[in-house]
Nucleic acid binder design. Structure first.
Lengths: 189, 189
DNA sequence: TTAAAGTCTTGACATATGTCAAGCGTTTTC
DNA sequence: GAAAACGCTTGACATATGTCAAGACTTTAA
């Protein structure tokens, strides 16, 4: 599992064999089965997770008990409640394994140490932050400026793997519509 | 105007008189009247704006010509198309003055220089990035998990100044509803 | 292997929100 | 100061989407 992370990091930064070896020992392997909750609202997020295999869902639950998915993360992506993690304050979101997962996680203390000590690690963090922010900006704009049918098309075009890999119920919770509406609209494409 | 920025920076970082003087000369004053477009889709964003006075709207236009506002920014806030700016690629959003504005702007070149040379400036940028990301995450979650009435209440609770300061049409475009629906729902509170 | 749980689809109906139009008051502009 | 533009509210109606229920199919777990 560590090998995947090593590859991921060197891909991003070019060859830097020295500092990679500083970083890797701080990660801990974690195998979690489908349905495992890694974080709940009110809880302080202590880890950043790197996905070696599987899929994580970040979501909230509304007053009627419906889930709204903010984002799905898959292989070679990083997941955490960034703001809650950085400030060590309670989260407002759930993080759940929607498939069996092989994960690597790094603890808050190690993370802070590394960003301070290893510039390349800080650079990766900044990169992740900027990309995450950009994705979330896109997410707001698609949610507000596209109707349900166009959001489905958007998802098929931009995240075809997510579309085919997850259940309709999960996809619907990401698109902000009911599973029934998703079924009906898909037949119109 | 520069004095406001100086105050803003020292408030954030404590006293650091030396480096502030390195930063300030890179900013340029800009007065823009209501309606001025600072950025359009397809255009590469060359500046980061600091608002001394006024209000900026970041929005997109959908296929029917309707505006969807992603965010409003007011006094002492920073506005830019972060991702497009950092990567110098075309934006997908508009940035517009919805009031007469007094702004300070810093050019891409200066910005890169300063983040590389002045750690405190890089720290402010990281802070802004994290807060912006967090706000946008909240925005996704309120859009998908709250109905229109609860989104109005959310806005009144969390951004009362925005609510009273801007037109119903603008507020509605932020909430993802029509101006008529906003009128009707407000009477239910 | 079988029971239980979950998934997808479809129908009937309910509801929230949008659209268009009109009226009226306020603000802006020449 | 008059004309034009704009902003808010309300009504009538259209439409998109949600909710609930049922049936067929598939996957999971004992």
């Amino acid at each position: 599992m560590i090998e995947t992370l090593k590859q991921h990091i060197t891909n991003r930064l070019g060859k830097l064999p020295d500092n990679v070896e500083l970083v890797l020992p701080h990660f801990e392997e974690l195998v979690a089965k489908k349905g495992t909750l890694l974080l709940q609202p009110g809880e302080v997020c202590k880890y950043v997770y790197f996905i070696v295999e599987g899929c994580l869902q970040v979501y909230v639950v509304d007053k009627n008990g419906n889930e709204s998915t903010r984002e799905f993360y898959v292989e070679e992506q990083w997941t955490t409640d960034i703001f809650g993690f950085q400030n060590q304050i309670p989260s407002s979101e759930y993080i759940r394994c929607v498939e069996s997962c092989k994960l690597l996680r790094i603890h808050f203390t190690s993370f802070q140490q590394l960003t301070a000590a290893v510039p390349q690690f800080a650079a990766i963090y900044k990169q992740i932050l900027e990309v995450s922010y950009n994705n979330t900006v896109y997410r707001v704009n698609t949610l507000t400026s596209l109707d349900a049918l166009d959001r489905i098309k958007w998802l098929m075009d931009h995240k075809p793997k997510i579309m085919s890999r997850l259940s309709s119920k999960l996809i619907a919770s990401y698109l902000g519509i009911s599973a029934e509406t998703l079924t009906r609209l898909k037949s119109k494409i």
